[in-house]
Design a protein around this nucleic acid. Sequence first.
DNA 1: GTTCGCTACGAACACTGTTCGTTGCGAACG
DNA 2: CGTTCGCAACGAACAGTGTTCGTAGCGAAC
Lengths: 247, 247
Amino acid sequence: MTDSTSRVRDNPRTRPAKAALSRQAVIAAALALVDEVGYAAVTMRRVAQALDTGPASLYVYVADRDELMAGVHDLALAAVELPRPADGDWRARLELLVSRLIETLGGHDDIALVAITRVPTGPQALRILEETLTLLRAGGIDDATCPWAADLLDQYVTSSALELAARLRDQRAMTAAAGAAEATEEAMTRAARSELDAVYSELPAATHPTIHALRPAMTTAGRTSHTSAAWKLGVIIDGLLAHHPQP
Amino acid sequence: MTDSTSRVRDNPRTRPAKAALSRQAVIAAALALVDEVGYAAVTMRRVAQALDTGPASLYVYVADRDELMAGVHDLALAAVELPRPADGDWRARLELLVSRLIETLGGHDDIALVAITRVPTGPQALRILEETLTLLRAGGIDDATCPWAADLLDQYVTSSALELAARLRDQRAMTAAAGAAEATEEAMTRAARSELDAVYSELPAATHPTIHALRPAMTTAGRTSHTSAAWKLGVIIDGLLAHHPQP
DNA sequence: GTTCGCTACGAACACTGTTCGTTGCGAACG
DNA sequence: CGTTCGCAACGAACAGTGTTCGTAGCGAAC
């Protein structure tokens, strides 16, 4: 980034044992901490400690905790590869892109929370918006509706990433608690669902007949996160195609 | 608090008309505070102060701040009226229900954040889930897919409510700052969008050609929150109908 | 050789959610 | 009627949080 610091850092004689502070270093350390202790537990003090410094030093490179997390969000997006032409037609590529987004963001705890408060405008977010719009256009979506569709897809990505993160968190907590007992996704979701099932079961059929009638369908196995996410995305894309005319 | 007031309060004859503490009173006070100072600024101390007591007293009726907010979320849902048969067919009624949900939740700042961390299971949430499932079933959606569809709609409601809340917050901040200058929704969204437009405009057309080409579409007026939300909901329902077969 | 500019950071401020131990009141019991 | 007991209420405190201020230090520039 800065010439002077890099020149100094490159000099072995003056190079300190620790990496010099920089915006990138702060954001990278925060991302690592998100993976280690979770989004909510990433405090300015902990980030500073990871960089072997004090909390006040961070504010030279970052205005806020919010802005720091926005940087982390964008950095996480950098790992998302754009689909290539060989991956199929526009629809296959769009589905691939969206699922990669959900899996990547969901893999970094609740980092997707950042996208709820503010509309991400980092370089990586723009790279992905560009690709999304291009694919939608290739699918024949009207130019005027493309931004709306991208908005809808973004909403879907963010909330699905948070859902995935919550499931992974529960899964980790359960494996940690259950010790050696392996916790497959199936066993996990069944355990989590049983909690909900208890609520649904104790519901008087008189007041909530439909929930009661559909309870087996709610419990149905095979409702893994993957199939559910793929199904929902399919619904949205089908809806975009069916809704062709612009209001 | 002070000796004099407490002495006065202890006297039943002069005791003010404040309601005795109860779970309902605590949650109601918290909801009022959400509307007054915003979701993030609702602290246990402020809730206690509104009830003329100390923070420790709240923990008799509420386990957590999270649980308190879950109660507030459910209480907010109580204001949502279910559509009546006279409101139209299943689709019209479903659209009405969803838009009422978004408007109600979005009207209480970021209270919808509660639905992201935990799946709401309060009585009001169950009342609305029951109605949603009933309407979907009436629309001919397969029994096995109804829960998935309800999930998708819930995701949509929650994220849209947060989007609406953010817009209302910005609007309020702007009216407060602009003083007497009236800030219509149109003027408001234009101002907010100009911020994004600045980002899009300064984007090199070489690297982001589609964003550049679609920029007029992104700025298009008439993209009020209402039309946008209605359009998105239409897309989802169309998708549900088009996607008929269950995977 | 002195001054300047700027990064780094120790210390502190005003808060937060939550818990502990005590208080005081009303009701039940002898 | 006098005593005891359960329990809601709460004052005070703890361990944190994000953020700011003023100062120290050091390389670069005049």
